[in-house]
Design a protein around this nucleic acid. Structure first.
Ligand SMILES: [Zn+2]
Length: 156
DNA sequence: AGCCTTTGACCAGCG
DNA sequence: TCGCTGGTCAAAGGC
């Protein structure tokens, strides 16, 4: 797949498959792909790709699960930096249409470093701003927003 | 060769 | 105490 995290948004493929679920009601998949034949899709044709909004940070996916409780897929990401414990959680509905319009991104923790893209995106006006990531790219604000989402989701 | 993605299994917390 | 859900780690594959 294309891992153009530095140029484009990341894409996640969601394959609706039945697994350890004894209470999966009539959770029908919208794809309606073949039954058993055609186990090998033709280059991401039958599967739908989710476009994750690029926030400027680089993440490494370390897990993905389907939450039956809410009927949504959930992907777990972690900052590439070993020194950074920032995590990111993305969830979307199982339906393709709704998935594209209802993607929830939850950021957990704060980065211990500056935006990697910011450094790379540094072009010319570096003398004016310097290292202060002003309005547009302020991780702090972003994290603040995530905290709300996290609380709403965690709610111990 | 290295890095990232993907799937399954394991573990922990809670009811 | 067991079962279930959610979360994380690990191994394999692909690029
Ligand atoms: Zn980070």
């Amino acid at each position: 797949m294309e891992r153009n995290m530095e140029s484009a948004a990341m894409t996640t493929e969601a394959c609706p498959n039945k697994e350890t679920s004894m209470e999966i009601d009539e959770e029908e998949n919208e794809e309606g792909h073949g039954e058993e034949q055609d186990i090998e899709p033709a280059a991401g044709n039958n599967i739908y790709k989710l476009v994750l909004p690029k926030d400027g940070y680089e993440w490494k996916k370390y897990g993905q699960k389907f939450i039956n409780n809410i009927g949504k897929f959930r992907s777990y990401f972690k900052c590439q930096r070993t020194e950074c414990s920032a995590k990111k959680r993305v969830e979307w509905l199982a339906s393709e249409e709704q998935s594209k319009a209802n993607i929830r991104v939850v950021y957990k923790g704060a980065h211990t470093h500056m935006l990697p893209s910011d450094e790379a995106a540094d072009h010319d006006q570096s003398k004016s701003q310097g290292t202060s990531s002003s309005s547009s790219s302020n991780p702090n604000q972003y994290n603040l927003l995530t905290q709300v989402l996290t609380l709403r989701n965690q709610s111990t």
